[in-house]
Write a protein that binds this DNA or RNA. Structure first.
Lengths: 167, 167
DNA sequence: CCTTCAATTGCAAACGATTTGCTACAAAGC
DNA sequence: GCTTTGTAGCAAATCGTTTGCAATTGAAGG
């Protein structure tokens, strides 16, 4: 499918191959009656820059660099923004096996599989994407990891729930 | 590879194809100087029976059925038992996208990929295990789910950490 | 069977991360 | 610039998880 050159706003979807932009995301929010504020712009810019999933505190502290006046957005603000983006399927919570949550934008540019060290917590975004079982050993060898396991879960709406609210 | 008919105890490992048994698990604990108590036996039986990952409260409440005298083990006891099994790599925490944790035994009989409904939370263990990207649509169609996404993470010890403690 | 010692348990308190109520603030339309 | 209504900050509440401690109980040895 040739990519449309969207001069118009067509809100990006989770399964869209197209990378998210500040403009596109802004438009996605606007079209829902939501407002683009300094905080939100800063948070989005942090997420757009991210090379790996970020925790709420990371997002909060990095947002300073994009905010005017160097104001740090409140923690609750970051929390609510991420909950909002998740709701709109523009961002995802990533399971890194930690107590707290990590987030990434839901486009293909930012969605990666990750290699997490259970010891030091290092997160390595993977380039590949293939059969899991087979890959486990390859990934282990390639990255010099040991005791590699994987966690693979699917999320979606079941038939019953799909018929209910269209969402 | 022909399966050995283990009359002897050889503690089961995480990547062992052989299903866990109450006896084998008991021996695994014993060999570590740990004790097999009524609580633990009950919890293990719950896990052995499970067809899908269970939360701590589920484990606790179902344990009643295996405990003598119908005593419910304390929540903390269940928590500590699961932490222990995780430590020994006999059980795993599973990411179901919920706030609380879910567990399953770490053998092939119990380790499954899952399909989780983001709406009602229904957990469907999958029989298949193949390339993720390709499978997403197939799984969606087969189970009547929509908006299917997946979460795939790898866990292990990185080179640096591997050299440190042997664990 | 009884004793001994360390592992285990229950209880309750401590924790850490997340979530929410409320009021003041500020985007965006008019 | 005024109004409407979404948003931000602050602090308190919540939720799941984790831990300290004293009492209990496996299980090995006498």
């Amino acid at each position: 499918m040739p990519r449309s050159h969207s001069t118009h706003h067509h809100p990006p979807h989770a399964d869209d191959a197209e990378p998210f932009t500040l403009e596109g995301l802004t438009e996605s929010l606007r079209s829902k009656g939501l407002r683009m504020t300094g905080n939100r712009r800063a948070i989005l810019q942090v997420l757009l820059q991210a090379e790996e999933p970020l925790g709420l505190e990371q997002i909060q502290s990095e947002a300073v660099r994009y905010a005017r006046g160097g104001e740090t957005p409140d923690f609750a603000t970051v929390f609510r923004m991420m909950a909002l983006l998740e709701e709109l399927k523009l961002a995802r919570k990533v399971n890194l096996g930690r107590a707290s949550s990590f987030f990434e934008l839901a486009d293909s540019r930012h969605h990666r599989d990750h290699l997490v060290c259970t010891d030091c917590g290092t997160v390595t975004p993977l380039e590949e994407s293939c059969p899991v079982e087979t890959l486990e050993r390859q990934i282990a060898r390639k990255h010099g990891y040991t005791q590699v396991t994987h966690s693979l879960e699917f999320f979606g709406r079941c038939g019953d729930c799909s018929t209910g609210s269209p969402s």
